[in-house]
Nucleic acid binder design. Structure first.
Lengths: 122, 122
DNA sequence: TCAATATACAACCGTTTGGTTGTACGTTGT
DNA sequence: ACAACGTACAACCAAACGGTTGTATATTGA
């Protein structure tokens, strides 16, 4: 795991740790929305929503494009997939633990002269 | 999405937003570790590491069991899977957007008397 | 032209976070 | 018995967070 990867992960999970930002991300994944139209959906100031959008943008979870005076935000599904991939890696570590437990179990069975150790996977 | 679910998600993503906590989670997913043995791995006080473990525990990402004077921490892979499932839901919203774009495209093609609209599925 | 709209950003403020040290208490090994 | 170990938690502190208001600037439509 690279240092830069950890920085990205910090930004990803921090961005996702706020429910307003998760809700914004849902909307912009489902379709493009201007910042002001997003702001109208929440009981807080425009500036607050704009900051949330900026956090998501810095984390690479959404992108903005300018159209006239509007900034249209769009969710980046590849980034969402990358976050999911990171969690899959964590799951993989757990599977590794189970495998090592299997090995120990198998070795123990051999020591006790049981010729057919029972294999376990997942 | 329930209110309690959002609270859980807040706790999950906040717990994962710190690199020390992610590293702790990796270790305890791969195998049980006492809090003090974890603490020896990081350049910070025992109390700091203990607080990180407590954050992960409150988020439901790890569990502790007492064995004598030690507290053995173990990662909860089901919780990790639940976080992954939440991200899959986000991905699903994006797929929904693409589908709606397909519909619009198909309708547009019909209007232009093109008999064979090209279907796209992720 | 000019008022309304959309965005950006700075300054501020109370709360939370991530770290520290210190204290207390149960467990273990000699 | 008692020193060392492992854990828990309180109190404290600087920095970051999530919100606010205010100001500046560009775009649009009547």
């Amino acid at each position: 795991m690279n240092e830069t990867d950890e920085d990205r992960a910090d930004a990803w999970f921090h961005a996702l740790s706020d429910r307003t930002r998760r809700d914004i991300l849902r909307r912009v994944l489902a379709g493009e929305h201007s910042v002001s139209s997003l702001a109208r959906s929440y009981d807080m100031s425009f500036a607050a929503v704009q900051k949330h959008v900026a956090v998501l943008e810095r984390a690479g979870l959404l992108t903005k494009r300018r159209q006239g005076r509007e900034a249209l935000a769009s969710g980046d599904v590849e980034a969402v997939r990358a976050v999911g991939a990171m969690l899959s890696e964590l799951e993989g570590l757990w599977r590794g633990r189970i495998s090592r437990m299997d090995e120990l179990f198998a070795r123990d069975q051999q020591q006790h002269d049981r010729p057919e150790p029972t294999p376990r996977r997942d």
